[in-house]
Design a binder for these strands. Sequence first.
DNA 1: CTCGTAATGGGATTCATTTTCATATAGCCT
DNA 2: AGGCTATATGAAAATGAATCCCATTACGAG
Lengths: 131, 131
Amino acid sequence: MGGRLTRQRAAVLRVLAGCQDFVSAQELHVRLDAAGVPVGLSTVYRALHALERTGQLDVVRDEAGERLYRPRPADGHRHYLICRCCGRSRPLDSDVVERWAERVGAESGFSAVEHTVELSGVCARCTGARP
Amino acid sequence: MGGRLTRQRAAVLRVLAGCQDFVSAQELHVRLDAAGVPVGLSTVYRALHALERTGQLDVVRDEAGERLYRPRPADGHRHYLICRCCGRSRPLDSDVVERWAERVGAESGFSAVEHTVELSGVCARCTGARP
DNA sequence: CTCGTAATGGGATTCATTTTCATATAGCCT
DNA sequence: AGGCTATATGAAAATGAATCCCATTACGAG
């Protein structure tokens, strides 16, 4: 995260690291309060942007269009299967898609091709819980 | 679309069919005005929802999170490569991804797995126009 | 320690989308 | 053709995430 390491950014980093799943900025803001380290909402957004820019976060959008953030695993996986019911997320091995996206990009005459891949479903636990 | 075929819904359908690329609800609303068939914004949103529910539209989100709609091609393609610069879209042959998503879903213990795949880039025309 | 610069925060703002509710109308029934 | 009613419409207000503004604070280099 390039800039100064302030009390607030440290807290954002710490709380975020404690989440194994996707969190919204708003939720993170609340959790920071709960953790006794109040951080302004603007600051939360700014910290998330910075982390996103430096590739330390993965971002998805939920069905309402809200952005959800999650620290990127050390192994570099960037695509997930997310439970629409409980929100639990599981990184995916997406080599196949990665290669496909690259090929399509190359064949298309487009440059700077980027891709978004998201899978969602209902996990076994949730299927059992609410049939 | 299920419900009554009103003047407004007919117009939404018609103008939408005339767009070969993704359009936002707001943009569609303006185009309807321009076409001399004023339709309330709420009605535009309602019509789009109805069409989405019945699978007649494909939806993506632009980088701002705004929803963009496009009539689904007859051949059933549902994934696109979109120019971030001019917005032109091109349907993709996504069998590879389709199969991958299916396999991941099956192996994961998740049910009702859905997937989103979007590619974006800068098309040849735009690359030439603004280097 | 001192200072300049970057960061903070809270309130205001933006803007897409949704809701509300009074009014209009599609389209079935006779 | 006329009536009737569930459905659709639209203007305005509400919602809510994300961004902007700007006076104040505090990191950290020197």
